[in-house]
């Protein structure tokens, strides 16, 4: 391995991994169990996993078509569309949360109508958590999938058309399977981002145990009063996300690998 690559790679790895080691070192191992078995921990973890997974599903349903439009269609203003859908990447999540209020809040453009017509409000519900996470995480999926679509050979779609497949059939039976690894990578990225989402969630969904308090919110609040507990919660979040990612990775690698 060439040194100019090896040295920065090692430094970079250390930079990324050492803070995690710091968490492990400072963890209160002696009273880990009582901290872990607090009902609030399980509650927050369940809510986190549920909402991140739902946010990923919503992102798949809405984000893959966006990526397709960006990569394949010839409509005007695609670059504007791309810039718009990636705005949440650069927007501070708290601002994203406020923006969601302005649209979906009780006083928001759509939210007011929902409130007045159905007496239904989105903020401070689990739905709001999923919406906030989707808002922040979907751009990661869109960008990944668009990249995969651009990298995929569009002539396969021509071939499908000459075999009688309309664009929807082509998308389902050819395009999507071809970019499946890219979609999977995007979904993982999206899920991870949703799992760690804090700013937009606490702003738009608020913080209430069992309904809207996800792990990052629990960690942040624990930090105010019980730093040890915050470290434990962080480790739980860390462990669960690492385990999930490794598990999924193995499965996908196993499926997409081509025996030679």
């Amino acid at each position: 391995m060439p040194l100019p690559l090896l040295v920065p790679a090692l430094l970079g790895t250390a930079f990324l991994v050492l803070p995690l080691l710091g968490l492990l070192v400072r963890a209160p191992w002696s009273n880990l169990w009582p901290q872990l078995t607090q009902p609030a921990v399980g509650q927050a973890l369940r809510l986190s996993l549920l909402s991140a997974t739902l946010a990923t599903l919503v992102s798949l349903v809405l984000g893959v078509p966006i990526a397709w439009v960006l990569a394949r269609s010839t409509i005007r203003g695609r670059s504007v569309l791309r810039a718009l859908v990636t705005v949440p990447l650069v927007l501070p999540p708290v601002v994203g949360g406020v923006a969601l209020f302005l649209v979906l809040g009780r006083q928001g453009i759509l939210g007011r109508w929902l409130y007045e017509t159905f007496d239904y409000t989105i903020p401070f519900t689990t739905t709001a958590v999923v919406i906030a996470e989707t808002f922040v995480a979907m751009p990661f999926l869109v960008i990944s999938v668009e990249g995969a679509l651009r990298a995929a050979d569009a002539r396969f779609e021509d071939a499908a058309a000459t075999l009688g497949a309309d664009r929807w059939t082509t998308f389902r039976r050819v395009t999507l399977p071809l970019v499946a690894p890219g979609v999977a990578a995007g979904a993982v990225l999206c899920w991870a981002r949703a799992l760690g989402e804090f700013g937009a969630t606490i702003t738009f969904a608020g913080n209430f145990p069992g309904t809207t308090q996800t792990m990052p919110l629990a960690v942040y609040l624990a930090l105010q009063s019980n730093p040890e507990g915050a470290i434990v919660l962080s480790l739980v979040l860390l462990f669960v996300s690492l385990a999930t990612l490794l598990l999924l990775r193995d499965r996908w690698l196993g499926r997409s690998a081509v025996p030679s």
Binding site: G105, R106, Q107, P123, I202, G206, F208, Q213
Partner: peptide
């Protein structure tokens, strides 16, 4: 009977200002 336990007073105030 709160709907949300805010992380700081500023966040609580923002939600009042937004009328939420």
């Amino acid at each position: 009977q709160p709907d949300t336990l805010e992380e700081d007073v500023r966040a609580a105030l923002t939600k009042v200002e937004l009328g939420e």
